[in-house]
């Protein structure tokens, strides 16, 4: 078990990495509360953190707009980072990203179905599920996508990199076509909601809609983090991991459900925010190696940090108007993905 006998120095440097990330995240969280199109003083920010009936306008802006948005950014970033890392471990493929392999578009398609056809075909479900209808629908969509991708990319017991990416392309294309058909069916208003899923934004969150998905995302992140040691064992190979006493099938199923839950909830409230799940784990691996005990928490922290920074730009660059955050992450993440493709070309095909 070489992974368990890590040198102490290495252990310490990893702890420092996590601490640095946590510190940067605290700074960016503070910035998320303090910086915006409305200049707001420290006193109002402090006041906004406590429940009160009698708040100034500025404090209300922090409490009703910036604070839920901050929490959403933290959750979505952490979920995308950690699910990206876990999926890459699960598929043993460095290019597995919820966006690229079609998990996000599966979720977006299901969310679109809920928006456009939910009230017509499943009014009972809509009434029963309330605020949870969209996250649940998105969860189902990402679940179907993730299971079919997994089934399609298995070849003789191992995951083939090329067929994983190809299956992802196919699923993205099919979900895109179905979403396109939905836009054809939808009313003007539904159409606006649909475009939102494809661009991504943290700007629509209110406390009411935040609470259910924040709970789901926290659960997904927390439970995925606990799978770090199992993923390390799994890295040795499926059969080897089995011999070492790991219940491989159960771990796979758990990770698939958690990935679908996390990505589904994230997509349900913020649309498709691409490439965070790809970039965060890779940057962590560059600094700290492939041990999932550092990659998973590191990706959660870095994912949150990336989303917060992107959202800071989205909120302020075009003020008083706002940019869609998904556009920003894709603009930055696209070149990064190309670089990765170049780096892994030989291993993939």
């Amino acid at each position: 078990m070489s992974l368990r006998n890590l040198h102490e120095a290495q252990e310490r440097s990893r702890r420092i990495l996590l601490l640095v990330l946590a510190a940067m995240l605290s700074v960016s969280s503070f910035l998320a509360l303090a910086v915006g199109p409305v200049p707001i003083g420290a006193g109002d920010i402090w006041a906004a953190l406590w429940p009160s009936e009698d708040l100034s306008r500025d404090a209300q802006i922090v409490q009703q707009i910036r604070l839920p948005r901050l929490i959403l950014g933290l959750c979505v970033g952490a979920v995308l980072g950690v699910c990206g890392a876990a999926l890459q471990g699960l598929f043993r493929n460095p290019l597995a990203d919820p966006g690229i392999i079609g998990v996000s578009s599966g979720a977006a398609l299901a969310a679109g179905l809920v928006i456009v056809t939910g009230n017509t075909f499943a009014s009972g479900f809509m009434e029963w599920a309330g605020n949870y209808a969209l996250p649940l629908g998105a969860f189902a969509g990402s679940m179907i996508a993730i299971v079919s991708i997994y089934a399609l990319s298995q070849r003789a017991g191992t995951t083939s990199g090329a067929s994983l990416i190809l299956a992802g392309i196919a699923i993205n294309a099919m979900a895109g076509a179905a979403l396109g058909y939905l836009t054809f069916l939808s009313s003007d208003n539904q159409l606006r909601q649909l475009t939102f899923w494809t661009l991504g934004s943290l700007g629509r969150i209110t406390w009411d809609s935040l609470v259910p998905v924040a709970v789901l995302m926290t659960i997904a992140v927390a439970l995925t983090l606990r799978k770090a040691a199992a993923l390390n064992t799994y890295l040795l190979g499926e059969r080897e991991a089995g011999h070492l006493g790991l219940n491989v099938e159960r771990m796979k199923k758990t990770l698939i459900v958690l990935g679908a839950l996390g990505v589904g909830s994230a997509v349900a409230v913020s649309g498709i925010i691409g490439f965070v799940g790809l970039a965060a784990p890779h940057i962590i691996r560059l600094f700290a190696g492939a041990d999932h005990r550092i990659v998973l928490p590191g990706s959660a922290l870095l994912g949150a940090l990336l989303v917060m920074c992107a959202d800071l730009i989205a909120r302020t660059a075009a003020a008083p108007a706002e940019l869609p955050i998904g556009v920003l992450t894709s603009a930055l993440g696209g070149p990064f993905f190309l670089w990765l493709l170049g780096r892994y070309r030989r291993e993939l095909f």
């Binding site: 409305v38 700007g203 909120r315 003020a319 008083p320 108007a321 706002e322």
Partner: peptide, 11 residues
Amino acid sequence: QLGAEGILSLK
């Protein structure tokens, strides 16, 4: 495609 804070910044 409005953003809340941008509008609020105009007081």
